[in-house]
Amino acid sequence: MSLPRLRLERCSFDNGIWTIDAEEAHHLVRVRHCYTGSLVEGLLNGEKITLRLHCGGGAVTARELSRETEAAFEPRMELVLGLLKNDQLDEALRFCAETGVFRIHLAVCERSVPRYEGARLADKMKRWRKILDEATKQAGAAAPPLLCEPVPLSAMDFAAMPAQRLAAMLSDGTLPLRDAAIESALALAVGPEGDWAPEEAELLLAEGFAPVSLGARIMRASTAVAAFCSGAAMLYKK
């Protein structure tokens, strides 16, 4: 049985002892019913740290017992994701963390309904990163996916992405995902609700994305993220 998990970014460390921040402490004690002597697993910067809790004096602390670096997840996946409505994007981000996505590039597309800028964007980025942090605890991943701020699809830095590129599309002439030879690093692309606009599909094809099909049925965008990323991970052979 796995240990209760917490993220340690907001916790402080001194001489082998972690002071657990209030939100994580509340979750461990009130939700997970941990107590003095409980073993828990801390997640920080790609490392998994085994801790023994001490609850008392109005604070929760933990002694570090051991730590190990998590092996790099393969394949290394980067996801270009058309900006989605709140509930759909929340689900998609959770699926990214659960399926091992390394980096998420949010793309503002023609059919993307939300538009964020300034303080509102900063608040959204903070919320989205918190969703990724929470999802890594559930998945037992030591590090959350990196999240890039939304930019127009036409302004995206495709040159920095892996050479193998696959885009989920609803058009004819797509390659079934099961027939793709998945490499150790790849970029995947999933559009917003309603799929890519024609000029966006053309741009992706021009940038070397091969069009792939995720099956005969039309999925919600967040479901497509789960199917595409988990499918690519399962099809990868070292």
Results as ranks from 00 to 15, higher is better:
Ile131Lys: 08
Val101Ser: 01
Asn15Pro: 00
Glu134Phe: 06
Asn86Lys: 14
Val108Met: 11
Ala139Trp: 05
Ala216Ile: 05
Tyr236Met: 04
Phe73Ala: 15
Glu74Asp: 05
Ala72Gly: 08
Ser222Lys: 04
Ala180Ser: 07
Ser154Arg: 14
Ala227Tyr: 02
Glu183His: 08
Glu110Trp: 00
Arg5Ser: 10
Gly231His: 05
Leu43Thr: 10
Asp172Ile: 00
Thr174Gly: 06
Gln88Lys: 14
Leu132Ser: 05
Trp18Met: 12
Ile218Asn: 06
Ile182Tyr: 01
Leu79Cys: 06
Lys126Ala: 14
Phe73Ser: 12
Val101Tyr: 00
Thr99Met: 12
Gly42Ser: 11
Glu207Phe: 00
Leu186Trp: 07
Arg30Pro: 00
Cys34His: 03
Gly56Arg: 03
Leu170Arg: 06
Ala107Ile: 04
Glu207Asn: 08
Glu24Met: 01
Pro145Thr: 06
Ala62Arg: 14
Ala167Cys: 12
Ala221Asn: 04
Phe158Arg: 07
Phe73Asn: 08
Ser222Tyr: 06
Pro75Asp: 02
Asp195Trp: 01
Ala141Leu: 08
Ser171Thr: 13
Asp157Tyr: 00
Ala135Ser: 15
Leu235His: 09
Leu39Pro: 10
Asp179Trp: 01
Leu146Thr: 13
Leu177His: 01
Leu44Pro: 07
Thr19Asp: 12
Thr50Ala: 11
Glu47Gln: 15
Gly231Glu: 05
Leu93Glu: 09
Ala160Glu: 11
Trp196Pro: 01
Phe73Val: 15
Met156Ala: 14
Ala206Leu: 09
Ala141Ile: 00
Leu43Met: 11
Phe95Ala: 15
Ala142Pro: 01
Ala92Phe: 05
Ala167Gly: 09
Val225Asn: 07
Gly194Tyr: 03
Leu83Trp: 03
Glu202Leu: 11
Ala221Trp: 02
Trp196Tyr: 02
Cys109Val: 04
Ala210Val: 10
Arg94Ile: 01
Leu188Lys: 14
Glu199Phe: 07
Phe228Val: 07
Met156Arg: 13
Phe73His: 11
Ala160Met: 09
Ala59Arg: 14
Tyr116Met: 09
Val212Glu: 10
Cys11Leu: 01
Ala107Tyr: 03
Gly42Leu: 08
Gln164Cys: 08
Ala232Thr: 05
Arg103Phe: 02
Phe228Met: 15
Ile17Cys: 09
Ala107His: 07
Arg111Gln: 04
Ala122Phe: 00
Tyr35Arg: 15
Thr19Val: 13
Leu44Tyr: 13
Thr136Tyr: 04
Arg10Leu: 12
Ile49Asn: 09
Arg220Asp: 10
Arg30Asp: 12
Leu166Tyr: 09
Ala233Trp: 10
Arg52Tyr: 02
Ile218Pro: 02
Leu3Glu: 12
